[in-house]
Nucleic acid binder design. Structure first.
Lengths: 159, 159
DNA sequence: TATGTTAATGGTAATCATTATCAATAAGAA
DNA sequence: TTCTTATTGATAATGATTACCATTAACATA
């Protein structure tokens, strides 16, 4: 359960790292803390800056490397919202009630999380996943659903 | 109806251009022809190379500019499959029976189009769009649904 | 607890897709 | 045919991400 550990206690993700043979380092711990404490949709640079405040020795390359690792481990999701930089957010497994999708403003880049119809979506997604896995012999790990359009602030400006 | 015009006849998209005040140029015509004749998921470079075969004077910048124009006009969809380059495919309005989504192999980059459950998806999407438009006052133009995983060829290699 | 192996790091250069710039060209209206 | 100006092609610039490499620090072992 992210963010609920006693200070100094073993973090929830320590076993995941150990199991893969990965070392638990200061940069990795802080990057995960930052991801846990922040609202989603952070770019690599956002994360770098936040980590830098508490750990100024951090290097940008380490942020990218760690994020790639976390994405491969399935602990973090990587998104592309069309503005040329990737965004990252904690996956938090399936247990958290935070499963959501995104509404992206193509004018200002604002991102709105929504959870409406999530249950129906999940049902359809499950069904589709099952069918597609069989039909195409594809091992599905993940999915994205995104809506693009203009947010309330922008729909006046540009039509 | 794309690809069904007599040689030399006015193309289906001429009016769309005229209506917007855009000029009908050789590069634009060829780019649209290439998009029409090819299977989807072409990168800008793919398109550049295909156009270059029939029109060697084409410049890469023109390809990018034209694609951006077509995307803004809604004639072309732009996708990101996570490999660092954008992919483009003709939208063909809503009339064509080609509405599909993508299955993306995160190992080899292979892309499979699928149309399974499209009707159910469309229904859910419509419902969601309507709800979200109202709730967030968001003018939705577009959506993407993508599944990520390992294709049959890759699921052995990497687990 | 001290030590040795080697994964991980930080700084920086390199890469690569996409954009911006600008003089030359060609659509299309008159 | 002429004129206006959108469009083009070549190339430089940008910006995110990755590669490289010498140094550092996890952590298994003694």
């Amino acid at each position: 359960m992210p963010g609920r550990c006693r200070k100094g206690a073993k973090k929830w993700w320590h076993n995941e790292f150990r199991g893969c043979g990965y070392r638990i380092t200061i940069p990795r711990q802080i990057i995960l803390e930052v991801l846990d404490k922040s609202e989603g949709h952070l770019s690599a640079e956002d994360i770098f800056l936040k980590v830098h405040k508490v750990y100024p020795a951090i290097g940008l390359a380490t942020v990218y490397r760690t994020l790639e690792l976390l994405v491969n481990m399935g602990l973090v999701f990587k998104f592309d919202f069309g503005d040329g930089r990737a965004r990252y957010e904690l996956a938090r497994g399936a247990k958290e009630p935070s499963h959501h999708h995104h509404l992206i403003c193509t004018n200002c880049g604002r991102i709105i999380d929504y959870t409406d119809f999530i249950d129906e979506e999940i049902e359809l997604i499950k069904k589709t996943e099952k069918e597609l896995s069989q039909k195409y012999n594809f091992a599905i790990k993940n999915h994205t659903i995104q809506f693009y359009g203009l947010c309330d602030r922008c729909s006046g400006d540009k039509k």
